[in-house]
């Protein structure tokens, strides 16, 4: 066998291996979603969305958990977006390159890999106990903000870095200050990347369970939270709670709640993709 033949064989072998790997991932996802849909789809109706949890699985609904999830999402966004973007701008545009900056940089990347339950413990101590927020929405959102802050910082920095240096130079050479260059040129040009990172980070926050359990989110909430200081539950906790019950009816409820949760994250990811495509078309170098 000559070498070109051998190379082609290797090429083909890897191609089919790749196809196999891709199919494996997709098949698992399809089985998972299919299974959930079969179990839970029939259970989803308006009552399921608008009812409170109940001891009777047929009457139980997800209203407090769904509203709780939306609250958490909104508050987390309000807290984490300004912090994350500002920190990223500082690190990327103002911070001098020094040993300290390097250490900081490595640590921020490392923070993104810290297990979420650790953030829960941190949140419990700082927000729950020291700052006296208890098991409120605010404590939960603050904790999740800490959790996704590194993701937002890293993705915002990447987006800022992607803006060509020539644009920055042109702006400076026109007499623009640093902040003018950032606000007139860098942020608009990197908006697509920044918003994508934020939305992906938020959809991660929406799915988190462990840190919220640690700070004391409730499994049974007989009311709809109406202010940031209220106690709350969220969809993943509701799902976890139902799954752990022996009755078959609750397992079905859990599957239905998973469908709703997936819808929320799919919608978020969809928005992220839409914005990315839209802004990529608008800004091209």
């Amino acid at each position: 066998m000559n070498s070109s033949k051998k190379n082609r064989l290797k090429d083909n072998a890897f191609k089919y291996f790749g196809i196999g790997c891709t199919t494996f991932g997709l098949a698992m996802l399809a089985i998972f979603i299919g299974n959930i849909l079969i179990e839970g789809f029939a259970r989803i109706d308006w009552d399921f969305i608008t009812n409170f949890p109940s001891r009777n699985p047929d009457k139980a609904g997800i209203l407090p958990a769904l509203i709780g999830t939306l609250w958490i999402m909104g508050l987390t966004a309000i807290i984490s977006i300004p912090l994350g973007i500002s920190a990223a701008i500082y690190l990327e545009e103002y911070g001098k390159k020094s040993r300290l900056a390097n250490v900081l940089e490595i640590n921020i990347s490392n923070l993104a890999g810290v297990p979420s339950i650790i953030y829960g413990l941190l949140g419990l101590e700082i927000f729950g106990r020291i700052m006296g927020m208890g098991g409120s929405l605010l404590a939960g959102a603050s904790t999740l903000s800490l959790l996704i802050l590194p993701i937002i910082i890293v993705s915002t920095r990447e987006a800022l870095k992607a803006v060509p240096k020539s644009i920055k130079e042109a702006s400076f050479a026109m007499g623009a200050s640093k902040w003018q260059t950032i606000s007139y040129q860098l942020l608009p040009a990197s908006f697509g990347g920044i918003i994508t990172g934020i939305i992906l980070a938020l959809s991660r926050a929406v799915g988190e369970t462990a840190p919220l359990i640690v700070i004391g989110a409730l499994a049974y909430v007989p009311f709809v939270p109406s202010s940031p200081t209220d106690e709350f539950s969220v969809l993943p906790i509701q799902i976890f709670n139902w799954i752990s019950r022996p009755q078959k009816g609750f397992a079905i409820n859990a599957a239905s709640a998973i469908i709703v949760l997936l819808m929320v994250t799919f919608v978020l990811n969809g928005i992220a993709m839409y914005l990315r495509n839209k802004w990529q078309k608008k800004v091209q170098w």
Binding site: P164, S166, I167, E169, A170, S171, A173, M174, G175, A176, S177, Q180, Y184, Q185, A189, K282, V283, Q284, W285
Partner: peptide, 22 residues
């Protein structure tokens, strides 16, 4: 500069950028 580096904005906005930041 060596490589033309207009801002990714309209022609009009490019010309008035210096005035805008003033």
């Amino acid at each position: 500069f060596q490589k033309p580096n207009p801002f990714p904005k309209t022609i009009y906005e490019n010309v008035i950028y210096g005035l805008r930041i003033q």
